[in-house]
Design a protein around this nucleic acid. Sequence first.
DNA 1: GAACCATGCGCC
DNA 2: AAAGGGCGCATGGTTC
Length: 812
Amino acid sequence: MTLSYRDEDGIKVLSKPCLFAAAGALPELQSALQNGPCEVILDFETTGATPWLQKAVAGKIGGKWTTAQYCKEHDCTADSRLRARILSVGVPASQFCAAFDLDLMDEEEQRRLVHLLSGHYWVGHGLQFDYAWALSICPDVRPAKILDTMLMVICFRPDLPYEMQAANEPSRAHRDTLQAYVRAKARAKNQDEGGGIVSLQALSLLFFDVDMDKRYQKPINWTPAYLTAEHHDYCLGDINAPGHLARLLMGLPWDAPMADLLDCMQQAAGYTAYHTMTEALHALVRMQRKGFRWDKAKAEALDAELQQQAMDALPTLLAVAPTLEPFVNMLMDTADGMTDALKAALGDALYKETGRRMPKTKTGADSTSADALKQAFPKSVVVAAYQQVVDATSERKKLREYGAAVAEDGRIHPSTSILTTTGRTSSRNPNLQNIPRDPRFRSLFAAPTGYRLIATDFSSVELRIAAALGVRALRLLHQIIAARRGHAGLQATLQTPLANMNWIFREVPELQAWLADPLQIIPASIRNTEMELGREVGFRDRALVAAKQLCVPVQAIWLASGGDPDRLAMRLTFANGLDPHIMTALAMESAAGRFDLQGKLPVDYLQSLNPDDRKALKTTLKAPRQAAKGVNFGLLYGMSAEGLHRSGKTGYGLDWTLEEAVLARKVFFNLYPELALWHWLLKHAMKQKRPVLNPYDASEMRTAATGGKVYWGSTLSGRPTVAAKTTAASNHQDQGSGAEIALDAINRLPDNVKALLVDFIHDEIILEVPVDRISDVQAILERTMIQAADAFLMPFGVPTEVESAIGDCWQH
DNA sequence: GAACCATGCGCC
DNA sequence: AAAGGGCGCATGGTTC
């Protein structure tokens, strides 16, 4: 075959041999796919991040040529226009594989190619990307099943990152590469290049000990008219890898039949979630295709307004911090960030004002983060004035980011994909899940004429899930107690937790008898145990500490509810339609002696009020309620008293002492002892010793012998979770359940409502709805969201509420 | 110039 | 001893 390509001048023909396939190969592909639904591995190479957004096309072709060098060498031109360039297809059953050069095919031929893949089982890693590009070529394409190794890791093999940490056998040819990946991953908390929970390259290193070639990964590689044999090899060299990996991930032989693979997945605990996620992909890629409308004119007006806002704040800043005079332009410019010189000038101003030095980052540099400054200089006029200017400019930076991402249709088309540890979606190119809450900003997302936006969110869904997890924890405790008293069936099903906790019962035999009736006084040996830091403690001491951490919340549970899972405080809060934030606020205020609960528990007190008084209380206790939000979310995931103290000061403007934070923490877990029990069980019952990087210091490897351990758990659907910290472990169960609930809600929507999706932000669903369908769609959406949540939460007796906001523009 | 890291900050 | 979690994106600075 000779190479031909199209450019603005029409078709040119090159006389070089071309390895890539074009329309001529379609009949062969068609016959490879004719025997019913079959496994198809697909992989796009593109010149941009999404079909709507191209970032700077930079880098070197094949990691070595500049574009000019390459074009000269290969006597060709380059075209950086945004497009899908290559579609690699593998059909293992027919031993078919080909890399189609889409530049050699016209639109109709491309559409026919993609259409051929419809109705088959798609296999790949992070297929959301490929699905979106396929859809941009053929709007009605739809795979029958999605076998995505990324989603499989999330749902079936959450332990894989830890397996990678342990995989350092000297026999591995690419051991160092794998370990470098593992360390980079552990270190890079907020960095790009994450590739989600695990990259295809990393999977290949782990399972095949093969270091995949990444030289042709970047968009620049797919711009030249002529593509080399190396390009071709890059496309097809590893084409079968995702299929083999899918089997290996499930513990099957690499060449196991598809039927076995599907069967194995369906048997696994994570399958419900896997099904939810793959189903949701269909809706998410179509949401991306639709896009979220952006009001350009309004955005420009807001930009001017914010610029004025920054300008107005400037004189105040310069009056108190004249050293910042030379940096005025830098502070106002949306393309500039913080420089060392500006940092130093700010430090000078603050030193003059307060006589104290700047706070430090963990690497010892001066920190200028809003939190650190507020913490270090709570009453500083300089800090307040500086934030005024910087906040306005930073909002303008977001305007710039979104403005640059608006497509020709006036809409923004981010990719919303599922690639995170928790199973939550994330949004990128651009990220439409972190839009500033400033109502002026949100109103830039507007419905076209004749349409309205409906934004509906789950109210306090993370706390509702926590309530369910609390119920689940208490049920588990009952089972553990029964098993320890001889229930053979439970002994079998609870082997791991029992084995994990055995050392505590062995060292503290008095615990077992006490658990038979937790209303008894806690044995003095346990009650009087105090954790002493810096002292070598023995097994018995440690077991006593663990026992105490169990007994205290368990007794609180029995005191409040007699051990009945249906009467746990957080569940009751929601069952009674009460606001958990006001509950916590009441408890805190009463503990501080500022509020008289008339001897009642907060829940009973609230219930004794009539609805009007309850509402009034929300106003009276506005500030405490705001503070309580921070307490609820922080403590839910195991925040320490110190952390709570700090976040209360910086995040909620609380002027409180560490002692007060300690008290608030105590009050919280006394109010919701089931959460303490939940934390205790995940720490003590579901741990597993294994090599793990110290989560607090990525450079430090801990072996199973030196204390490395992970904490297993599961979402409410049964999807397994793993974390190396108990804080993260609790989070993964809760957030992961929340993600599944929201995705399930999307899946349950009828197709003609699904088609209205324009954005999805974890617990909020946004639809763009024709005016005449508003009330209809609102009812369907709200009902469906509640049904989805009920399926997860009602087995634990936790009801759900949702809240809608409707308008010409987004207002939530 | 590219790649990497550190820092900071928006959201749920 | 340490210790809320989960994301993506921007800029500046350093290194190769």
